[in-house]
Design a binder for these strands. Structure first.
Lengths: 191, 191
DNA sequence: GTGTCCGGAATGAATATTCATTCCCTTAGC
DNA sequence: GCTAAGGGAATGAATATTCATTCCGGACAC
């Protein structure tokens, strides 16, 4: 196994185990054994567990953004743009349940709270795209005049909730249901 | 301090600390000291930490349901009923952020996953009220024809997301914004 | 005086992290 | 081409810490 393969194995094992069992249920020893390396080896690639956790989060972000923005055309009408982003986000989460679970775990941990707070002040990667979309929508009077944070809640809250149900096997989400869900989110934010 | 006061103090301390720091950041010793009792005393009231955690969850449920159902009239029109329940839920969470944070932590832990699964099969306390409302709405053709789980996602997803933002101080939620938020949720589920 | 309840130190299990040792690949010498 | 030395990477047993749970001496009620 080459050096970079090894790093990749470690990250993959950590993703799987943490997504499935949470941060508590993911001791280094378990991650190491799943990755097929020694426990000490992990510390050759990551200074400590926290840094591994943060690095993994960042890797997921870097997979998610390009996926969502593929084919996105900022010149199209608001509604169309929203449907594109919403559907892409929903699809990514459904197709990458481990990533989704991991990000959820992360946000619900001390790591996440700090990060979200930092994001709010500085610019967040994808956040800017959505913020621009909503502000465009408000000024064109096609979106409700609400704080952007509330519009985000109306748009993403249901999407993530649906993904959770899908992962827990409460709802079977197919293409048709994805489209209907995103359309309903649009109904929530449009004037 | 009387016996029942002591129990109450323990529960209150556990709620505060777990809501704020999560299950990991809430060792028994810390809960005990916040409650003003010895660590061993907690085990006189709760057989172990898991049982304390579960009991606390149940207490919160038992506060929440009556609050939401106060003044609820199942004979009124669908829309009105939804606005009542949604507003009550949102208000409860805003006014009792510790309860909200605790329940979120709980749902995102191994305890919660098992519980949600059990709920899905058997009857869940308040769940029945909402299920009945949505099914009524569908049969009266005022609510979108979607799985009840998806309707729940559309209705509650945004509410909880707004509460999260409020607690993190990202959004200041007053009465007016609460009403607008719930109304927007209605737009999401209505035909 | 006896029994009940408390407190908080003691215990032992679980876990992150360290580090002395081993392993293996590259390269230099012949 | 073959062997040996050197060095960086990997290892996993040992360590230190954290934490739930237990236990026992003492305080208090009656």
């Amino acid at each position: 196994m080459s050096k970079s393969e090894k790093r990749e194995e470690i990250v993959r094992a950590a993703l799987e185990i943490i997504a499935e069992h949470g941060f508590h249920g993911a001791p280094i020893a378990m991650i190491a054994s799943r990755a097929g390396v020694g426990a000490g080896t992990i510390y050759r690639y990551f200074a400590n567990k926290d840094i591994l956790i943060a690095a993994l989060y960042q890797e997921i972000e870097e997979r998610l953004y390009p996926f969502i923005l593929r084919g996105y055309e900022p010149a199209r009408p608001i509604r169309e743009r929203f449907l594109h982003l919403g559907a892409a986000l929903l699809r990514y989460c459904i197709e990458n349940p481990l990533d989704f679970r991991y990000v959820e775990q992360f946000h619900n941990s001390p790591y996440g709270a700090a990060l979200r707070r930092a994001r709010l002040l500085g610019e967040g990667g994808e956040r800017e795209t959505f913020r621009a979309l909503f502000e465009d929508g408000i000024s064109q009077q096609v979106v409700k005049e609400l704080p952007v944070t509330v519009l985000c809640a109306l748009a993403f809250g249901p999407i993530f909730a649906v993904v959770r149900d899908h992962i827990l096997d409460f709802t079977r989400v197919d293409d048709a249901l994805m489209a209907k869900t995103v359309a309903a989110c649009w109904d929530g934010i449009r004037r």
